[in-house]
């Protein structure tokens, strides 16, 4: 092969992208296709030969269990997304000012980010279980007399335990992304607004917020995408019923009757599609809002 071949721009681009894109085609698109095809009734190893059929999807989508699970999953995902975005942005903006002990604070503000979600789960159990530390503190304060009087935060449909773990991990996540965006914006814009007579709130709303909005949208998008598909946290801290979509999916995946696997696959396809729709709608909404403000020049 001539040297010129490797100088060709298209060849350079193709060869450069090939390893990463190829790996992901095999490891990411492949499995998704397997899941999709099996959910459509093609699973010869389980002696399911009904491709293509929407029966498994219909079966899943029309069940009450699925609908309840979908509502619960959306709820557990959206509430922490909203709260984590609010708290994370507030934290980043507060932290961007002159603060004593910045390095020290920043270390702990990022700590939850670098540990597994399971660490958060263990903490929530230690603190909020009925025999946990908070219940003990309430007992010591004379507010409750037995573990039974402590409100059920874990393993209940309210999902407080699940959402607390998400918040523990995702406030720092939002914080770190917004902090990075803020450091690119610099304090001058807010200062300029102040010299023009804007109060602190006005400076935030009219100048800082529009500038950090892309970062806020990105982080909340990723947070929601994670929450919606998380398995281990709702499995460990949620109620047996209602369970979230991923928990229901894995339950069906693990039943001894392998011919029911396509049903599990229909579940994960549904999870992917719902999550995709929500994310897409969110982005569309943001774009429209951005355009309505005239767009960034």
């Amino acid at each position: 092969m001539s040297r010129n071949f490797f100088r060709d721009r298209r060849v350079v681009i193709f060869l450069g992208l090939a390893p990463a894109v190829g790996t992901l085609l095999f490891l990411f698109v492949g499995p998704l296709l397997v899941a999709l095809v099996q959910s459509l009734g093609h699973a010869p190893i389980y002696r399911v030969h009904r491709f293509p059929t929407l029966e498994f999807h219909r079966q899943v989508l029309f069940s009450t269990r699925f609908r309840i699970a979908a509502v619960v999953t959306l709820y557990y995902a959206l509430v922490p997304t909203f709260l984590a975005t609010l708290l994370g942005v507030a934290l980043a903006v507060t932290f961007s000012r002159r603060v004593r002990g910045k390095r020290f604070l920043s270390f702990f503000f990022r700590l939850p980010l670098v540990v597994p979600y399971l660490v958060g789960a263990a903490m929530v159990v230690a603190l909020f279980a009925n025999g946990g530390l908070i219940a003990r503190l309430l007992y010591a304060a004379g507010l409750i007399e037995s573990t039974g009087q402590f409100p059920r935060i874990l393993f209940s449909a309210g999902g407080w335990g699940i959402m607390l773990v998400y918040l523990f991990k995702q406030v720092p996540f939002t914080f770190i992304i917004v902090t990075a965006v803020l450091s690119g914006v610099g304090p001058e814009y807010e200062e300029a607004a102040r010299t023009l007579g804007a109060s602190r709130m006005q400076a935030f709303r009219f100048v800082l917020l529009p500038r950090i909005m892309p970062g806020v949208v990105t982080s909340s998008l990723l947070v929601f995408a994670f929450n919606f598909q998380s398995y281990e946290i709702p499995y460990l801290l949620g109620a047996t019923f209602p369970a979230t979509l991923p928990v229901e999916a894995l339950r069906r995946f693990n039943v001894p009757d392998l011919t029911r696997r396509p049903e599990a696959m229909a579940y994960v396809v549904a999870i992917t599609v719902i999550s995709g729709i929500v994310l897409f709608a969110y982005l569309r909404l943001y774009r429209r809002w951005e355009r309505s403000r005239g767009g960034v020049g």
Binding site: Y189, E191, A192, R194, T195, L196, G197, A198, G294, G297
Partner: peptide, 28 residues
Amino acid sequence: PTERRRIGMVFQQHVLFPHMTVEENVGF
């Protein structure tokens, strides 16, 4: 506070708000 000192300030890097038009900037 700054916003009530009735000052006008021009910063070194002009610091125009990039998401606003010229008249929105001037009218801020």
